[in-house]
Design a protein around this nucleic acid. Structure first.
Lengths: 250, 250
DNA sequence: GTGTTGATATCGTTA
DNA sequence: TAACGATGTCAACAC
């Protein structure tokens, strides 16, 4: 979507393969968002490989190189290519008819998406402008702010000393001290947590204990809205603690 | 996309808000895939909350209840609602002009997406059929098959005994024995692994050792194309092993 | 570029 | 329904 005075749309219905090819090429050249709807097969080869037999699908080509193939179901595209790809459009003579082929290719990793249309029902090009970015709240970062502003939410007397404190196992969300001067490692999760989060906290506690010096007492506290039962058992097993708290979604 | 003889598209350009509302309502009623392009704001309230100021965007309403809002950049939609939502379309009198409002709502969790169009440039409805499903290869499941068919790939004499063997920490990918009769826990990853995979393997090995009986010797083997350095250190630290192997993408 | 982690992750499977 | 783990996860950020 190039920045134009006003957004614009141009659209073709039931185009010939050659007319479709031309419209798509023109749209991508103009840096427009291009959509194609029709009957197609989809093949992918790269990090994995996949094949999708014929069906009616909606294909979106973005000017940043992304490709999305959507069916009528699911939030996720049935197939796709990430931004940074090169789009190619061409007509191919196949079995006595002209087919329209879309190809999206990238390197590192080398992968290729091929959409072969037996029939194109609509091609549209959308040009517009979008200067604004999404403002999101209720994230882990918001949870961190909440605790830093009011450390007593974690426990009375807790003193935050650093965020993203580095350890051999990675960066700790919040590092601080309790009233007794013991080191406290805090791991934050914005939603209910499972065993993976406990393992993560455990790695940090172990690494920090070793880093400070032999058998330093390091407490580990997991902060999240809630925990699963298996995670709770794991916490107890490893002498880790849990505080129920959630990000302020306001 | 209802199953029809042949796919069909109906499209409106520069419709009035009321004409757009009618076309969208008709499309969703017919279980078609509906797209709307125009200038809009987007608000989300639910697991988190977000606000997106005015811009030109492409909105897709799927008959399964999913909603996708795309800008001209990125593989991911700038905002969305998962399948299972109820779509609602209406015209609202605002600041002396008619605005078109799309609302997608679901419960559990309760969340709501509001797209408010100041200007609609195109509404399209797509009906078609798609009976075929994606065939994907090069997954973790393929890697498992490869090892089960040729256990010596893991190590000479390895004997698989079970897949998805249950432990208190979760199900083990492959459980087996080595030539010495020792229990072996195998964790598979289709791509290069980091510290999280090592922690996962460690949880399984610990749980199984405890489950079998006190101080049973249980080996843990991580199978993946490669490991990061930190993961390698963690493996060594906990006496776990690594075998380099990747899924056959053919 | 690789490494690490968060995400309104999404998705599928299973208890 | 919740829980758990895979994903061609994606995306942001650090190094």
């Amino acid at each position: 979507m190039t920045t134009t005075e006003r957004a614009s749309v141009s659209s073709l219905e039931d185009p010939s393969p050659e007319a479709a090819r031309e419209a798509i090429a023109k749209g991508t050249e103009r840096e427009a968002l291009v959509t194609v709807f029709g009957r197609c097969t989809v093949d992918y080869e790269g990090r994995a490989s996949s094949r999708l037999a014929e069906g009616d699908r909606h294909v979106m080509l973005k000017p940043d190189g992304a490709t999305l193939v959507h069916t009528d179901e699911g939030q996720q595209p049935v197939n796709w290519q990430p931004p940074g790809c090169d789009h190619d459009v061409r007509c191919v003579r196949e079995k006595g008819t002209d087919a329209l082929v879309l190809e999206s290719v990238r390197k590192t990793p080398e992968e290729r998406l091929l959409v072969r249309f037996r029939d194109v029902l609509q091609v549209s090009s959308f040009a517009g402008s979008d200067e604004n970015e999404l403002a999101l709240s209720g994230t882990e970062e918001d949870l961190r702010q909440r605790i830093l502003e009011e450390p007593t939410l974690l426990e009375p007397g807790f003193r935050p000393l650093a965020t993203e404190r580095d350890t051999p196992a990675g960066a700790v969300d919040i590092y601080g001290e309790d009233t007794a001067g013991r080191a406290v490692v805090v791991e934050l999760k914005r939603r209910r947590v499972g065993p993976d989060a406990v393992s993560q906290l455990r790695r940090y506690v172990d690494a920090l204990a070793r880093d400070l010096h032999a058998d330093a007492a390091v407490r580990g506290v997991l902060v999240a809205p809630s925990v699963t039962e298996r995670a709770e058992r794991l916490l107890a097993e490893h002498g880790l603690e849990f505080v129920s708290l959630e990000p302020d979604p306001e």
